[in-house]
């Protein structure tokens, strides 16, 4: 198996890792770096469970090749509470019961974080537009929207 080194920043930490040439960013994060908060739900970009923020934009990490990310900056769920306490978004998810099984939650939070980074007080429809690529089978989405709206309200 051909492996190649890659250098990148994940949650403001520098990494130099050897990865198989055909590895995805998701595989790099989970298997090589050991950050398993990011989940795989479909492997085909249809569910958003693997959402991370790559160079400021939310992406399905299952559809990014690891070697594309040379020099890139990646943010994952593990970076969301980097200051040692839960972020506003994480607190709002708990407050509003915005998860059940929790498997989609890391991806949901990263998509929501990317949205709030560019649009601090999104409307109901803007939230749906930005979050459409993240599937949840448990909650019916209502509570997730409430959590994101609440953070938007706080930031305002």
């Amino acid at each position: 198996m051909n492996t190649r080194p890659i250098h990148l920043t994940v949650n403001n930490q520098g990494y130099e890792v050897l990865v198989p040439e055909d590895a995805t960013l998701l595989e790099l994060l989970r298997e090589e770096i050991g950050l398993t908060g990011t989940k795989e739900g479909c492997g085909a970009g249809e569910c958003g469970a693997c959402t991370v923020i790559l160079n400021g934009k939310p992406v399905n990490s299952c559809l990014v090749m690891a070697l594309e990310c040379e020099g890139a900056s990646v943010r994952t769920i593990e970076g969301e509470n980097a200051d040692g306490e839960l972020s506003d978004l994480q607190k709002a998810f708990i407050e509003h019961n915005a998860f059940q099984c929790g498997f989609c939650t890391p991806g949901m939070i990263m998509s929501a974080r990317a949205l709030l980074d560019t649009n601090p007080d999104p409307t109901h429809d803007e939230i749906k537009e930005a979050m459409e690529g993240n599937l949840c089978r448990c909650t019916g989405y209502e509570a997730i929207i409430a959590a994101i709206e609440a953070v938007g309200g706080i930031q305002k």
Binding site: G45, T51, E129, E132, G133, N134
Partner: peptide, 9 residues
């Protein structure tokens, strides 16, 4: 096309 998440790529 697809959804906002995929349109970033």
């Amino acid at each position: 096309l697809a959804n906002s998440l995929l349109r970033n790529r």
